[in-house]
Amino acid sequence: MNAEEIEKVAHLARLGLGAAEREGYARELSRILDLVSQMNAAATEGVEPMTHPDAAGLRLRDDVVGPEIDRDRLLAGAPLTRDGLYLVPRVIE
């Protein structure tokens, strides 16, 4: 992976990387990709992708309203709030 790809991926993941970090990740991720590319030795044509252990089914729930959480408790750990709202730097539309 080159520096440009690293920067693109870092942006998608919203990770701010310094120049040294970018270089380090470029090196390490390339090694990991080498490891990962060993997968190509396996023939997988026509194999159904497996996203979950087979026995796992999706259980549904009934449409019932559950207990509420007090807003002060919900917001207690938030870095910045006002009047019951989470605050972030202004989003420009």
């Binding site: 449409d63 309203v65 509420e68 959480i69 807003r71 919900l74 019951g84």
Partner: peptide, 26 residues
């Protein structure tokens, strides 16, 4: 629906901010 698609919070419109959100919604 009465409750949300993936959580048990109420779906009514117009409640004070963040009073119809639980730990799943947040």
């Amino acid at each position: 629906t009465r409750s949300k698609i993936f959580s048990t919070s109420k779906t009514a419109y117009g409640a004070p901010p963040n009073t119809q959100a639980n730990v799943v919604d947040a």
